[in-house]
Amino acid sequence: MTESAKLTLLSLATLSILLLAPFAGLGDIADAAIRQHILYDIRLPRTLFAFVAGAGLALCGMVFQAMFHNPLATPFTLGVASGASFGAALTVFLGLNVSLLGFDAVTLGAFIGALAAISFVYGISRLHYSFSIETLLLTGVATSFFFSSLILFTQYLSNINDSFRILRWLMGGLSISGYQSLLQLLPIVAFSAGIMIWLGRELNLLMAGDEIAISRGVAVKRVRYLLFLTTSLCVGAIVALCGPIGFVGMMVPHICRLIIGTDHRWLIPATLIFGGGFLILCDTLARLVIAPAELPVGIITTLLGGPFFLWLLVRSRRSA
């Protein structure tokens, strides 16, 4: 099967998920008006939002995996999502209410937290001449722990209401209603995806390692900083709006690579589409598992992601 045929199939599958998901669990509501309201004002925006957030998370994961040549390296495992979470929690705690370029305080806090985390993790892993993926991943783990305790600290100092809100938000949830969150997130994810598509050839070469990328003519430092900024913005915005939803950025791009190969001209659209579809699926599951109550979707993705992480780890050890 050619790449374009695979991409078409993937798109069709995602489209059917997108069309069916809003109707899941709607069967037992008799009143037509209420059904309409739930469908158009709650389910549809939530499904579309899940698509955009999932696409963004998956694309950021894909970029990190390519930049660090390892499927285990993602914004989530490297502490970027924790940094973003702390930034967002801190702005909530401090009650900051500034906005810049149309971004609200929580998004800005998450963006700065994400950027601080990746700068720190990358800086540490570069201290040694021989860059090792183990150092990078362990630094990411340490950074995650560090930011997690800072979050606990702000939570401890918060009043009970804020504290509970932070806790629920940290579980990662998509229980939004209306179109406002969607309209906030869409431009950021679209912009990030645009940058990644623009840098498709550079991403291909980065997968071959920095030395080869530089010798082929890629201005690696500049490309890497641009990608750090882009992914920080994208992860920051998603975390600010729905909390840290883990492992989507690890599972989706890796599965896409197995399906469609490593060429980013195909991998980027595949990851975008499948990432969106995947998060809709997880969110639908989260709504249905303990209906009429619902789970935070982050619990579902992490339950799937943990074993996936271990599988990748065992597999890479075996082949090494």
Binding site: I212, G217, V218
Partner: peptide, 16 residues
């Protein structure tokens, strides 16, 4: 030279 210009002038075969 920009890196791209340099890569049109010099190529490199790494040890790996």
């Amino acid at each position: 030279y920009s890196q791209r210009e340099l890569a049109r002038l010099v190529s490199y075969v790494p040890q790996s």
